[in-house]
Amino acid sequence: MEVRLEGLTKKFTDVVAVDNVSVVFPSGKLTGLLGPSGCGKSTTLFLLAGLYNPTEGKIFFGDEEVTEIPPEKRGIGLVFQNYALYPHMSVEKNIMFPLENMKMPKAEAKQIAYEMAKLVQIEELLDRKPKQLSGGQQQRVAIARALAKKPRVLLLDEPLSNLDARLRLQTREEIKRIQRETGITTIFVTHDQEEAMSISDQIIVMEKGIINQVDLPQKLYNDPINLFVAKFLGNPPINVVEAEIVNKVLVVNNKKTIKVDLPNQKVKLGFRPEDVRIDPNGPLEANIYMVEMVGRDTSILCTINNEKIRGIIDSEIEVNVGDNIKFDLRKQRFYLFEYNTGARLR
C-alpha cells in the first residue's frame, strides 16, 4: 500500500507544524521520518494516523483518500513512543484487544495473538503483564499488537527512544526483520540519524515543518541537498568553514586552495571528518589544538581561522598539539553551500 501526502499542512494555534508537505511513502518499504525535535515529524505521523486533522491537504492510502476518515477506519497500526500497552491486561489480552474489536471469534484471535507473538519472538511471555517486561519486550508487544489486525500501514513513533543503547541496536534490526517478513508499508519517526540510516529503505529529512530531502540513506549522506541535511547526518558531524570563491578558486583563510567552477561569491565549505587526509602538499591548512585517540583512529581537533574542525586520520600518523598541518580531502569530496540560504552549490 503506497501512502501519499499532497500539500499537507497542519497549523496549531500559533505555529505551522507541517507546512505544505507532499511526499510518497513507497509500498512495502520502511521509510524513516527524520528531523530534530519540533520539526513536525511526529505531527506528520499523527496526521497519517488520523489522530490530528490536517488544516489543508490530502492523504491517500493507495488510491483511496483517507483525509477525513477517522483513525479507526484507516486500517493502520500505530506503535506509540511509550508503547501505550494496557497495564491491566496480559500480553495476550493486549494483542487480542484490537481483534476482539473486530468481533473476531476468541479462538481465532488467540491463534493470531500467538502467531504475532512468535513473529516478534515473545511467545513465552503471553501471560505476563506489561509491568513485568523489559523495555525491549514491551516494544515487541506493542509491535505485535499493532500488526495483529493486519494493518495496511504500520506507523512507529520514536520506536527506540525509550530503550538503552544496547537494546536499541538489537531492536532496530528486529524492526527491520519484522518489516521484511511482513512486507508491510512502514513509516517510523526518529530524531536519531544513525537509527534512520541503519534500517530505512528511504529517509525523509524534515526541518521546521518542511521536507528538505527524500532519498536513500547513503545518498543523503553522500549528496546532501543543503547545509541542514549535511549537518544533520553523520557522526561526528560535518565540518563547515567559511570560504570565498575568487576567480574560480576557493579561498579559505586568505589562502587559495581548490579550483571550482562557480561564480565569485561567499560560500560555506563542508567536508566530512573521515575525508581529511594529511598531506604536506595539501591545499588546506589547520592548527591542531587537541588530539583524541579512539581505538584504531585518531581524531584531531583543529582550527582554521578560529573555526573548529575535526579530522579522523590513521593512528599511524604522528601528530601533536600545536602542529600546523596541511591536508587534502579524499576523492576531492567536499560540498559548497550558498552562504546565506545553505543551499547546495554544484
Binding site: G77, L78, N82, P98, N101
Partner: peptide
C-alpha cells in the same frame, strides 16, 4: 495516559468497550 485512548481508537474500539475495558479498570 491519553495514549491508551488513542491506541484504542486506532484499534477501532467501540466507546462502550473503551469505557468498560480501559477506563474502569
Amino acid at each position: 495516559d491519553k495514549q491508551y485512548y488513542q491506541a484504542a481508537q486506532i484499534d477501532a474500539t467501540p466507546k462502550w468497550r473503551v469505557f468498560l475495558r480501559i477506563t474502569v479498570p
